[in-house]
Each structure stands twice: as C-alpha cells, then as structure tokens.
Design a protein around this nucleic acid. Structure first.
Lengths: 222, 222
DNA sequence: TTTCATCTGCGCAAAAACACGGAGACCACA
DNA sequence: TGTGGTCTCCGTGTTTTTGCGCAGATGAAA
C-alpha cells in the first residue's frame, strides 16, 4: 500500500482524483493540501511515500515545495502533476529532485501505473511528455538557458526584486507606478525590466511576462 | 437519474470527476468530451440532461460551445465548471444561456448538489462565487464594459482582426512586425491595439493581453 | 436605402519603453 | 581579502507605444 499526498489548489480536481486513486487497492491518499504551506504543516503527521504536486499554486508553488521536499524529506518520491508540457520546466523540476512528470491531459489509469513505477534512479515521463523531450533535444539554445542561468542560493531564474516587478507589470502597471509601489526610482525599475527581458527569449516585456507565466516562473493574480 | 456530459480538455480531471459523479446514484456520466467539437459530434447519440462545461479548451472553447448548445439544444442545462472566478465572464456565460457557474476550487460534494438543483428559471452560483458577485455590484464601471460592448453577430468582445493582433502581440511581436505579418500598415495595427485596450479595463497592452487571457478570450500558444 | 460595425490608413504629439554603458553599496561566500 | 551577485541610481539616446482626431471603403443588416 502506497501512501499518497495530493497537493493541488483546485479542490474539485483534488478530491475527485483522490477518490479515483483510492479505488486502487494498492494506493491510499492519506493527505490532501491546497499548497506547499499546508503540506509543510501537515506532512509530519502522516507517513507519506509519494507526493503528487501541482506546479501553479498560490501561497507556495510547486517549485518551492519541490525544493523543500527534496531538502527535508529525501525519502519521499515526488511526482509533478501539471497541465504544463514545457521542456524547460520539466528539466527544472528534475533539477529540483522530482522523480516524475505527469501531464494532466493523460488518463488516470496511467497515473496509477506512474505512481507504482516511481523509483529513485530514473525519472518517470508521461507518454504525452516523452515525445516533447525528444523534440527538445533537437533544439539549440540561442539565449541564456535555465541550466546556465545565474545560480542563486535557490536556483531561481528571477531574483526577488525581479519577481516583484514581474507581478506588477503583469497587472498592467507602468514603470513609474511600480517605482512608487516599491519606493524605488523609475530608472531602477527600468533596469530590472531590462534584466528580466534579458533572461527570457523574448524581445519585449509582453513576450517576457507571457513566457515567464507559461514556464511557471510566475502566477497571474486577480 | 440525471445523464451528464463532461466537456473538459484535461483528461485526468475529467475522468476522475466522472468516476466521482458516478458514485452518486442519482447521477450518471454518459459522455466525456475534450472540447466543444467532440460534443457536437457525439451529443446526438446520447440522451443528455446536463452538460458540465469548461471554459478554456482548444478547438472549440466554452464560450462557443455554450452558444451552440443554447441555440441547438435548449432543453439541456449547462453548468460552467471553471477555475476562473471573474465576474465579467460569469455574466457573459449567463448571457449565453448557461444555467450555473461552479468554481473548480470548490468541493465535489457541492457539485452534486449544484447539478441536482439546476433549473431553468434561476442561475446557480457557487458559494465561493456568490460573494464575488456581491462585491462586484459595489463597483462602478469606468470604461467600456462587456455588457455594453459592441454586439457582433457572435457576441464576441474582440473582432477577428483584433483577435489576430492579440495573438501576435502575446508572442512578443512589435506593431511593425505584426504589420508585416498581416500585410497591413503599422498605423492600422496601432489603431487596433488602441481599440483592444479600450475594450479592456487595462491601461496598456500588457494588462490587456493578460486580462483577455484570464477572461478566456484568447489562448496562449507555444 | 440607410445605418452600423469593421477594417483600413493618415497626422501629430506626448508618454513610455527599450538599449547601452557606468558605478557605488551591500552582502554572502570562499 | 577578494569575488560575485544583487540592488540601487545615473546619463544619453532611440524606438515604440499610446492618445486623440479624422476619414474613406466595405459589407452586412435593418
């Protein structure tokens, strides 16, 4: 019997998936959480073997949660369950210690097999993911890549300040308005914007924001 | 016994939700589809009472599907099931003939009740949605609102041309580049951009694109 | 036919974003 | 101590976007 923790902010999805998984006699959903913070809170009270982790969540997202899990609970296996099918983000999750990546577009029958086949030496790929990885290998990076990105203490692409600015920009604020919000000079904001664009394959802020969202680096609020 | 059709492009979500609903003796999921196109194809072969409809889907999204359903199958009740909680989009779906709006963040127990309580005279609101409606009534529209937007033959917010331009803009192209792509003058593109911003509550293109995405008017490619 | 929305193009001016280079302060880490 | 990354600010200049007004062509609908 494998004990599972579900971490996903969509209650409807989470609960129905839990019901489905519990139908399998080898699986047991022992814990349901809405985000990483909740997992941190309740994980000590349960004996968990596998964590099914969504990427985009409020409070504490999949990236952070995955890092924390790997650091504090190396014995727990992590399976990312997301609708994102981007190569970069899969690599990112691999680097953060995830043991598999499962697309939400796939069938639940596959998921049970995925959970049962997880191990520490290999990385599980969804069938619908696998061919994407294949194609990705043909590409040649033209700009700064995730793997060569400045490695901060937490291996993030954007710095704290840049992430803040991305948030305001995505809400439609202008540089001057952001400067007011953050109590810094307009020119500082502009410098940050330049650096943000530099870190993405985009050529302007619109492309950069949407890229960052699609790659899972930021969430859209409101 | 209520016969249900599930329309959602996330296989995992759809199948597990179907399993959950089938546990209820009063409910029966008779049809599962990935998008509106599939629904159009398979609906005639089934006797469906209620359609659970996601908004953001490829091929044929919830907006289109809802319109089509209301027009061709007025006897079928439509319950929107989405993670979006925006007031405008809820009103839009009401106008298109939906009978209820359910947030994916809510509990599945609520969903069964929602389905059973659907009727033709009222509009079902999720508990987590209801307070949003309340707050929305306090607001005063400052700009052009969806309800007063130019009503085209298909009651869309953006025109065909504007949608095209939104697509290119969201991929980071500049006005000049878009003009080349579409073989129109830069100034024409700029006119369209102005009109797009006018139709949204945003003050610049970044805000407009992200608003349009969050409201389900456009999809992000790539 | 008239009306209306759409698509198209133009001119002008201000605002904002973007590009490039430089630099001091701070902090963590080796 | 030195290195490197981050955050901050500055100057200069170009490019792009945005705001506002105007207007003809087209096509669909009343």
């Amino acid at each position: 019997m494998i004990n599972i923790a579900l971490v996903d902010d969509h209650n409807l999805f989470r609960t129905s998936l839990a019901a489905w998984l519990n139908n399998n006699e080898k699986l047991h959903v022992a814990l349901e959480c809405e985000n990483g913070k909740e997992l941190q809170l309740f994980l000590p009270k349960h004996q968990i073997d596998v964590v099914l982790l969504d990427i985009q969540m409020p409070e504490m997202d999949g990236i952070e949660t995955c890092e924390w899990l790997t650091r504090t609970h190396p014995g727990i296996k992590i399976l990312i369950v997301s609708f994102l099918k981007d190569v970069d983000i899969i690599y990112q999750m691999m680097q953060r210690g995830a043991h598999g990546y499962f697309s939400k577009e796939s069938a639940p029958e596959e998921l049970a097999n995925a959970i049962l086949s997880l191990d520490y030496t290999s990385f599980f790929f969804n069938h619908s993911i696998r061919h994407i990885i294949q194609e990705a290998k043909k590409w040649k990076p033209t700009k700064k890549e995730v793997s060569t990105a400045p490695a901060t203490s937490h291996d993030q692409l954007f710095t704290q300040r840049e992430t803040e600015i991305l948030k305001w920009v995505s809400q439609g604020l202008k540089s001057a308005e952001i400067g007011d919000k953050m109590n810094i000079d307009v020119r500082t904001v502009e410098t940050h914007r330049r650096n943000i664009i530099e870190k993405t394959p985009a050529k302007n802020m619109i492309g950069a924001v949407l890229w960052a969202f699609k790659e899972g680096w930021i969430d859209l609020e409101g």
